[in-house]
Amino acid sequence: MSVADTGAPAPAARLSVRDVTARFGGITALEDVSFDVAPGEVVGLIGPNGAGKTTMFNIICGLAKAKSGTVLVDGEPRPRADRLAAAGVARTFQGLALFSGLTVRQNVMAGLSPLAPGALTGLIGLKAGPRHLEDAARRAQSALDGLGIGDTADRLPDDLPYPLQKRVALARALVSSPRLLLLDEPAGGLGEDEIDELGELILDVVRENAETSVLFVEHHVDLVMAVSDRIVVLDAGRVIAAGTPERIRVDPVVAEAYLGQDVDVDDIQGVGR
């Protein structure tokens, strides 16, 4: 599917990126990028290094500003960063970005929006009282158990091996049952088995809640091909292709710009949907 094929934003689109252009200094990071993510859809955002994938994520989250274009979440202009969680959007980071001085459980609890912005009761700590916190702790523990790392809850993230830290970051994003899950290179640093497990996990997220959408940036092409409903390919800040994994596999522009001519796409394997 090309950019033009996407047309006007579908009313039901969970995420709609329209004509986003971003420039930093004299460098164009993104140029007229448009794509949608529908409810329940898993979309992979791929491209070579410097293609603008993380910039796109940062613009979606409000951590970077676009020169022009719009980002809509559920048809509404994307809220500012500290209201994104309340809008049902959660994100992981390429560098994990765990709170190093908080325990694993507290890290995940932080994913439950500890203080609803603007809530007076939250400001003075009433809503944030022991009962609220105990409930948050229970939900955090449940999220950790679900990812098989419940026994790490009282440890510090830095004391855990990298793959487990990845799971903590994922638990923090999943604990609030987001409607839109943004994963920034979730497979980075993981072994082959762990990547397969991750693929299953991403699919479980959308299986368990048909309304949840996932947009993920990833370099592991086999994972992207295996779990994505659609793939958007960026190169030098532009969308060069968008469509189903089958279509992307055989797209010569993608093969040349990103996958490389020597990639034997028939060898791509992974977990099925």
């Binding site: 309340a86 970005a97 908080l102 500890p114």
Partner: peptide, 23 residues
């Protein structure tokens, strides 16, 4: 209290805390 947790989270990483709904 969650207020304390939010204060600590924002001290460790403002950007991530912000994305988790902390002002």
């Amino acid at each position: 209290t969650s207020l304390g947790l939010a204060m600590r989270a924002s001290a460790f990483d403002e950007e991530v805390a912000r994305l988790n709904g902390v002002r």
